[in-house]
Design a protein around this nucleic acid. Structure first.
Length: 116
DNA sequence: TTGTTGACTCTGA
DNA sequence: CTCAGAGCCAACA
């Protein structure tokens, strides 16, 4: 089953990102490990995403909980805006608290989700 | 097929 | 904590 194909790799990444609830973020390595590839591959997959996609790529950040500069050199601003718009707060200078917003695969509901 | 690049991560200092 | 270097995987020329 499953018949995983090369394209399935990207599909798996997109599917996983789509499972991220609003107000939460995930790291590349986490998704990469779930799909069976490295963080670089995840970033590459998201980079190949069209501007109008059904994948909340903005919820994907690096391991430090910060937004990495895109190949375009711009977009991290948009990403930050989208995250803040969803409820994620960048308390520490564009830094997200993974302990609070770090979404875990199949993780139960969180407890408070607000930022002073 | 090989070499380079890339939205990253890890380890060491 | 921050900075720097090396590594891993996938796509492109």
């Amino acid at each position: 089953m499953t018949a995983k194909k090369n394209s399935s790799l990207y599909q798996g990444i997109y599917n996983l990102v789509q499972q991220i609830p609003p107000g939460y973020v995930c790291s590349y390595g986490r998704i990469g490990q779930l799909v069976g590839c490295t963080a670089r591959t995840v970033g590459f997959a998201l980079a190949a995403l069209p501007l109008n996609n059904d994948v909340p790529w903005q919820r994907v950040v690096n391991r430090h909980g910060q937004i990495s500069l895109r190949a375009d050199g711009a977009g991290h601003v948009l990403q930050r805006d989208l995250l803040v718009s969803e409820g994620v707060c960048f308390c520490e200078k564009k830094r997200i608290d993974m302990s609070t917003y770090g979404w875990k695969f199949l993780e139960p509901e969180p407890s408070g989700s607000v930022c002073a």
